[in-house]
């Protein structure tokens, strides 16, 4: 295929470089060039959201974006959720409320939820359901995912108060 290109991006706060074909999907760059395999692939049609990452803070399905489109931008993946201060409230919520079974959809789901709570710190159940409707989970029936989001929202509010 055509010549490879260098993509420079800030990934989880660190400057990263990858040499990719222009057609390379962002999810493949993240998984195969950067070896961040927490971001998963679950479909071919942008339906499942297992590959959700944040691009400049907005959730995107990284299977439907070219790696080169991320050049010069900020990417956040599941691997960046935990900080020196500990787990993020979203990670904590998923564990506390049993918001996952097999764990395959979980990273993408948590990235969507992280973005939701940035934008809307106190979402209603309907708002949560709508926000995660682009992330499919086959195991949980979403009940405890919603509780996990509510848990995280509560913790976040507590921390802000």
């Amino acid at each position: 295929m055509s010549d490879k290109m260098i993509v420079k991006a800030t990934v989880n706060g660190e400057e990263c470089e990858a040499l990719v074909e222009p057609r390379t999907l962002l999810v493949h760059m993240i998984r195969e060039s950067l070896h961040l395999t927490g971001t998963h692939i679950g479909c071919d049609t942008t339906s499942c959201g297992a590959c959700t990452v944040l691009l400049d803070g907005k959730p995107v399905k990284s299977c439907t974006i070219l790696a080169v489109q991320a050049n010069g931008r900020e990417i956040a993946t599941v691997e960046g959720l935990e900080t020196a201060a500990g787990l993020s409230v979203v990670q904590e919520g998923f564990k506390e409320e049993h918001g996952l079974h097999c764990g395959y959809c979980t990273p993408g789901m948590m990235m969507t939820v992280t973005a939701l709570l940035e934008e809307n710190p106190d979402p209603t159940e309907d708002e949560i359901r709508k926000a995660i409707s682009g992330n499919l989970c086959r195991c949980t029936g979403y009940v405890n995912i919603i509780k996990a989001v509510q848990y995280a929202a509560g913790k976040k509010e507590g921390a802000a108060a």
């Binding site: 998984r31 395999t37 692939i41 993946t77 935990e82």
Partner: peptide, 15 residues
């Protein structure tokens, strides 16, 4: 097991 899954540290075949 959640400790690895919520960190993106699960290890699936494609990984």
């Amino acid at each position: 097991e959640d400790d690895r899954f919520i960190r993106g540290m699960g290890n699936y075949v494609d990984d």
